[in-house]
Write a protein that binds this DNA or RNA. Structure first.
Length: 291
DNA sequence: GAATGGATCGGATTTACGTCA
DNA sequence: GTTGACGTAAATCCGATCCAT
C-alpha cells in the first residue's frame, strides 16, 4: 500500500529563534498535516552523529516513552501484513544474540553477516526474492505497509537513531529484518536532512534579499546625510532619518528629542543591539543648550 | 518521465579485543 | 603480572547511487 507524502511526518524547522520572532512566517515548515505537531515533535536539527550523545535509552524518560510506545502499538500490529516470513525461533535467538555490539567475537561475526547475506545464506532481503520468487534475480522492491511506516515514523519521532536493542524490537514488532529497520532509519535521516537543507537554503535566500534591501535603504540614507552636510537648510525640510542617534558622551542609543534637530552623530541601526524603544535615556536632556 | 522510497555500496569512524614488546 | 602501542574485526553511520513502484 502506498503511503502518502503527507503521512511522512516531516516537520522541518530552522534554529533561528531570534529570527523567527522577527519573521515568524518564514521559519516553520510543517509537512505533517495529519500528525500531531505538538511541541514534543521531532526537531530535525537536534540530530547527532554520535549515538552515545543522544542514546535513546540514555535516560529513563526516553526508556519509558519507548516502553509506552511498545504497549501502544502492540495491539494493532498483530496480524500486520509482513513482507517476509516471520523469523524462526532459531533466527530470533540468533538475532537476540547479536544485539550487543560489545558482545563476544562469535556473536559479532554472526552479526556481520546481517548486512551482506541473509540468515539462510541468500542475498539480503532487499531483493525480496525469497517471498515471491519469480525466478529472476532482479531487485524486487518491497513496500512497507501503511501500519509499518506509521510505526517507524512514530519511532523516528522518539529518536532518530536506534540502538541494537531497539532495532531488534522494532524489527520483531513489524515483522521485518533488523537490517530493514536500520536501512529505513538511515534513509529517513538522509531524506530529512535533505529537506532541512532545502528549508535552510530558502531561509538564507530570504535573508539575503532582506539584507540587500536594508543595504539599499542605508545607502540612500547616507546620500541624504551627505546632502544635509552640503545644505543643512534643505535637510531641515526632509523627513527625519530612521537611524538612531547616539549620545556622544556615553555612547548609548537614544531617542532624539522631537522638537529640535539632534546634535548627535548618527550611527546605523544595529539589529543585535538593545531595541531603541527599550532604552530610556534621560541623560539627553542635560545635553540640550540652556535657554 | 518524474517522484518516491527501499536497498546497496564504499568510505569513515568508533569500539572491543588480541598480540607483543 | 601490568601497561601501552598497535593491528584487526565488527558495527554503525553517512553520502551517493541504483532501481522498482
Amino acid at each position: 500500500m502506498m503511503v502518502q507524502k503527507e503521512d511522512l511526518g516531516l516537520s522541518l524547522s530552522l534554529n533561528f529563534p531570534a529570527a523567527s520572532e522577527r519573521n515568524p512566517s518564514s521559519l516553520q515548515v510543517n509537512l505533517t498535516p495529519g500528525l500531531d505537531s505538538s511541541p514534543s515533535s521531532f526537531n530535525i536539527l537536534h540530530r547527532t552523529t554520535n549515538c552515545s550523545d543522544s542514546h535513546p535509552f540514555s535516560n529513563s524518560s526516553d526508556r519509558n516513552n519507548v516502553d509506552a510506545f511498545k504497549v501502544e502499538t502492540r495491539s494493532f500490529l498483530k496480524g500486520i501484513d509482513v513482507n517476509r516470513k516471520p523469523p524462526t525461533a532459531a533466527e530470533a535467538e540468533e538475532e537476540a544474540g547479536v544485539s550487543s555490539p560489545n558482545s563476544t567475537i562469535s556473536s559479532i561475526s554472526a552479526k556481520r553477516s546481517e548486512r551482506d547475506v541473509d540468515h539462510d545464506g541468500e542475498r539480503a532481503s532487499s531483493r525480496g526474492v525469497s517471498d515471491d520468487d519469480d525466478g529472476d534475480n532482479s531487485r524486487k522492491k518491497l513496500r512497507l505497509s501503511k501500519d509499518q511506516s506509521a510505526v517507524l515514523e512514530e519511532s523516528f519521532k522518539e529518536h532518530n537513531t536506534l540502538n541494537p536493542k531497539q532495532k531488534l524490537a522494532l524489527a520483531k514488532k513489524l515483522g521485518l529484518r533488523p537490517r530493514q529497520v536500520e536501512v529505513w532509519f538511515q534513509n529517513r535521516r538522509a531524506r530529512t536532512k535533505l529537506k532541512q537543507t532545502e528549508v535552510d537554503c530558502e531561509f538564507l535566500k530570504r535573508c539575503y534579499e532582506n539584507l540587500t534591501e536594508e543595504n539599499r535603504r542605508l545607502q540612500k540614507e547616507i546620500q541624504e546625510l551627505r546632502a544635509f552636510k552640503l545644505s543643512p537648510q534643505l535637510y531641515m525640510q526632509m523627513a527625519p532619518p530612521t537611524t538612531l542617534t547616539m549620545c556622544p558622551s556615553c555612547e548609548r542609543v537614544a531617542v532624539p528629542p522631537p522638537e529640535k534637530p539632534v546634535n548627535h552623530r548618527t550611527l546605523p541601526f544595529n539589529p543585535w543591539s538593545t531595541p531603541a524603544n527599550q532604552v530610556v535615556h534621560r541623560h539627553m536632556n542635560t545635553l540640550r543648550p540652556r535657554a
